[in-house]
C-alpha cells in the first residue's frame, strides 16, 4: 500500500481528521469513512452527478476528487442541508412537487440545484434545465425536479448553503453578447 496522508476536512460544519490513502476518492471517504451514505455513486465517468457535494461552497462531483484534494476544505453533503428538523427549501420543494421517485439521484440533484441557485437566484426554466445538465435522473423525466427548483428559488425561507463561492457569479451570457471585451 502506498503511504497514507493526513487530511483535515470540515464536513457539514464538523472538522474530521483521518489518515487516508491518496487514491481514496472523496465520495468513498464520505460514505465509507464518515458513514455519510446520502452521497451516491451512479457512474464511473463524471456524468451522472449522483455524487455531487459542495466543496468550499461549489458543487463538485465527489467521485472525481481525491479526499486529499479536499484537505483543509469545507464540504457540505446532503446530510448537512437541513437545519435540524427544518428542511432546506430545496428539500421541501422536492418533497412537495414530487421531484423524486427512487431517490437515488436526489441528493446530487439537490446539491447541484443549490449551487445553481447561489449563482442565479432567479433562474428561468431553461436556466434550471441547463443548470442541472450534470445530473441524470431516470425516474422523474425531470419535470417535477425543474418545478421544485423553480419553487425553491422563490421560497421566502431561501437560505444559502455553506460558504459563498469565491467570486460573485454573473448570469450566463447569450451567444455573442459579450462583444469585443
Amino acid at each position: 500500500m502506498s503511504s497514507t496522508v493526513g487530511v483535515r476536512i470540515s464536513v457539514n460544519g464538523e472538522v474530521r481528521e483521518h489518515e487516508v490513502e491518496p487514491r481514496l476518492l472523496l465520495v468513498h471517504y464520505l460514505r465509507d469513512r464518515l458513514g455519510l451514505t446520502g452521497t451516491h455513486v451512479g457512474c464511473d465517468t463524471t456524468n451522472c452527478g449522483a455524487c455531487t457535494v459542495h466543496l468550499n461552497g461549489e458543487a463538485v462531483k465527489s467521485c472525481t476528487v481525491f479526499a486529499v484534494q479536499a484537505d483543509g476544505a469545507e464540504v457540505t453533503t446532503i446530510e448537512g442541508m437541513a437545519d435540524g428538523a427544518e428542511l432546506h427549501p430545496l428539500q421541501e420543494a422536492f418533497w412537495k412537487n414530487h421531484g423524486l421517485q427512487c431517490g437515488y439521484c436526489t441528493p446530487g440533484m439537490i446539491m447541484a440545484a443549490a449551487d445553481l441557485l447561489q449563482r442565479n437566484p432567479d433562474p428561468s426554466e431553461s436556466e434550471v434545465r441547463h443548470g442541472l445538465e450534470g445530473n441524470l435522473c431516470r425516474c422523474t423525466g425531470y419535470q417535477n425536479i425543474v418545478r421544485a427548483v423553480m419553487e425553491a428559488a422563490h421560497s421566502p425561507q431561501r437560505t444559502t448553503v455553506g460558504p459563498p463561492p469565491p467570486e460573485k457569479p454573473e448570469a450566463r451570457e447569450e451567444v455573442g453578447k459579450g462583444v469585443g471585451a
Binding site: 466543496l55 458543487a59 462531483k61 472525481t64 447541484a112 450534470g134
Partner: peptide
Amino acid sequence: IADQQVRNR
C-alpha cells in the same frame, strides 16, 4: 464545457 460541477473543478 460539460456541466457546472465539472466547470467548478
